[in-house]
Amino acid sequence: MTAHPHYSSASLEQQSDPRPLSGVTRLVSAEAATDYARRNVSQATAGASADSRITEHVEVVVSDQGLPLHLWWRERGYDVVAEPLRWFARRRWWTEEIRAERGRAGLVSQEVWRIQVQDPLTAERITVDVGRSLPADRWRLLRIHENPQEPEAVE
């Protein structure tokens, strides 16, 4: 094998890109980035899926205002008996989804309702989290709470 002159790519590119080698424009200093990451990372990626997740399909009947009224689960009906609590939980869509085209709904978060339901036969009350998936608008049971927490009291 004889030695042959090779080209460094720089000599052949007509207009070399002036960006740093990392390929990214640095918008914040490295320290600021690390600092920011340290401060925010734990909550941001934890989401609601940390607990053992049940992903059982359920039916939810909602009011005109979009509030859950009844829950159908394993062929039994339950009434929602307390004021429901709603939030939007993050999804790790880049590991869970195969497409992320413009305009796709429900990619980044899932609407979650924490509701207290009562079994009309036993009168037993349980607290559950149900999630609503877009774009299909399907409901799933996410969690059943053994010891539901009271909502936060703000001082």
Partner: peptide
């Protein structure tokens, strides 16, 4: 629907991947 774009921007802003970047809580 633009939230996924914002996630990517959040990651790029701190030169990181989505796995380790501080992201918005939701959309």
């Amino acid at each position: 629907e633009e939230a996924a774009t914002a996630d990517v921007l959040d990651a790029v802003r701190v030169l990181s991947s989505l796995d380790s970047a501080p992201l918005q809580p939701n959309d």
